[in-house]
Amino acid sequence: MSALAAELQGHEPMAPEPWRILAVRREVADGEVFTWTLEPLSGRAATARPGQFNMLYLFGVGEVAISVSAIEDDGAVVHTIRAVGSVTRAMQGLRTGEVVGVRGPFGTAWPVADAKGRDLVLAAGGIGLAPLRPVVHAVLARRQDFGRVLLCYGARSPRDLIFRDELDEWQVRRELDLRVTVDRGTADWKGDVGVVTQLIDRGGFDGRNALAMVCGPEVMMRFSALSLHRRGVAPERTFVSMERSMRCALGFCGHCQIGPHFVCRDGPVFPYPVMEPAFRVNEL
């Protein structure tokens, strides 16, 4: 947690601050994935960096760790949430104007600055696009600093694609090579069918000089890392974002521990070689 965040919370990192929901947006047709834009009632908040997460607290229900999916210029923070458990399903029912608790930001960030002067490969699977979206925003804001930028995005089906409007916008921009694929097409789907690793295998970047950031289900990250290495991207320049059950977010409780690493404190963004052994251990 940043010093400013601790100061803002009066050195009580376990105490959530009240934030108001400014906007709610459905990302998929049934609303299972939705995006909140949040602002602090206090008017002050620590600025999150791409890849970090906040603990979102629905009073009386529970708390969940959710990655930042955009960082607005005015201090508002955007989170994209998939309703899969008791807390996130309850969050699905909240509307604009309601107040939730926020702790954070926590964790490590994507090494965007390290990608300067290099080709950048972003590989996202499913809702894993959300933690990478702030990277895309940061890169597009300083596009001249980077070489080729490739975004490979895979989803289960066309109806599961999130940020559709933004994808359409990125698709027509020349600054970004956006490749989208789905595991299962539909009759009206005109795009690619196949897994995200195939998009990486097609290349279009200088692997020896590239840096890669990968976010999605663990099996997708493992196979993506293999594809990247086949294309010449060094393992130490491949970064992954890990998901575990985060509770305290401070590295105390141990719920998110993977070997010697606390995902909430030492991650969620790790260099691939640090996490590679964990990918080979079942139920770790």
Partner: peptide, 26 residues
């Protein structure tokens, strides 16, 4: 082999919803 690996991955349905609020939820 690459196509076989891809087909296996496709078959695994890796993006299916998990159980509970584990992880970063996006």
């Amino acid at each position: 082999v690459e196509r076989l690996q891809a087909a296996r991955l496709q078959h695994l349905d890796i993006y299916a919803s998990g159980e509970g609020d584990v992880g970063l939820g996006g």
